[in-house]
Nucleic acid binder design. Sequence first.
DNA 1: CCGCTCCTTTGATCTGCATCAACACCACGC
DNA 2: GCGTGGTGTTGATGCAGATCAAAGGAGCGG
Lengths: 246, 246
Amino acid sequence: MVNRGTQVHDTAPVALQGACAQCALGKLCFPHVLPAAFRNLFPLVQEQRVRLGRGEFLFRAGDPFKGIYAVKAGFLKTCMPLPDGQSKIVGFQAMGDALGLDSLGRNVQATDAIALNGCEVCLIPLDKFEKLLEHPTESVHVRQLMARELSRVERQAAAVGTLSAKQLVATFLLDMSERWEERGYSKSEFVLFMSRKEIGNYLGLTFETVSRTLSYFQDRKWITVHGKNMLIGDLAALQSQTARAT
Amino acid sequence: MVNRGTQVHDTAPVALQGACAQCALGKLCFPHVLPAAFRNLFPLVQEQRVRLGRGEFLFRAGDPFKGIYAVKAGFLKTCMPLPDGQSKIVGFQAMGDALGLDSLGRNVQATDAIALNGCEVCLIPLDKFEKLLEHPTESVHVRQLMARELSRVERQAAAVGTLSAKQLVATFLLDMSERWEERGYSKSEFVLFMSRKEIGNYLGLTFETVSRTLSYFQDRKWITVHGKNMLIGDLAALQSQTARAT
DNA sequence: CCGCTCCTTTGATCTGCATCAACACCACGC
DNA sequence: GCGTGGTGTTGATGCAGATCAAAGGAGCGG
């Protein structure tokens, strides 16, 4: 939407009141989660702020469902525990993303949510959220949100089951690129906020394969990686890797 | 194979009116989709009935979103088209399941929906569905439904990315078993309403591997398969295959 | 009934990725 | 500074499952 990181620190719109009005995120908060109307109705939700350090749990699968969380700063991952004690990452959340939608209307969390680095999260308690949902517009908005997340996960499931390692990694990079762009940053230069191991877990690959594939892309000058710093040099080439080779 | 097939043909509860009252499914209709209250409010939704033959499309990805569908009889699959023209099955729907939840609030369908055999589906048009959602109870119910579907797909995505062929097929069989049981049929003797190819596509395996794995299970007397007829002889053994071997 | 096509099974071979292994790098505390 | 543990890269090897191949069965239209 915007290519200027500065916008993130613009002052909030006048309509905002209470804690939200002070929030540096301003109207960028919950871009996909809540329309402006919400923040007028419940200006104080952000009083329930949570700070997490790297590796800390926001909640665990099986925990009582307390409400919907909005990521204010930092990054998290949501993990689905598997029968054998392993656990698989089903999504990464960044600023403006919501957590807990998959547990709405149930009383326990379906996944773990773990901070990838220092991060800050706002809780919208269940009772306030439900009040919000009495307003038809907001209710529709939340359903849209869930539907979008549902088809995102469907797409992810489809990809993991069928694509090759190169296709998966290329798709992943393009996805990250898009998400940074949505938040007003460069789509060709950004930091991967997760480790190779986590990327591998998410894509159903080992970290060695992820590393090798990144090297492969780098060898062809399509990207430049230094640790977690990513520079995409040839977006089109990556896109071409997305489709199955003939 | 039918535990209590008769239940399916029980008369509908007195509360039901209109077209729904005549419906053979009775209270089994939409067990997971709509509470009884709904059928009192909109007794006529079933007038929008659709009949499909094997292989026919109920809708296609990109079609305008017309409403939520309920499966009255028969089986369908929902497929996610992939960039390379292939398409991947993301779910199977049987009697009482809903279709279209992943497109709620958006104006186009996210997936294809295709009949696996002759089947009958009821359309709940969008405007009626939205009226329904004005009632808080129903609104909550629909969110629950979406949340459940969301975590089902998350679990599926997690499984496909990590489990071995044996684990995947075992999990799949247990899943089918459970779904038949939910509908009042035997959990140990049922019909696989999809082909090996479709199972493979769903699980991210080739049909040869699916076939081999079924033979493998049959060799150890855990199951007996004749074509699509499935008899589970040792549920516990299958369950043990679900976990990663040590 | 035949002929056709699609589905299924089973065998043989191939290959992409996992696995095992060694080492470099960086960040951390001491 | 030096160790130590987590993280990343790269190489060598092995295996699960894909691919190729062949043949029997089931369903269906004519």
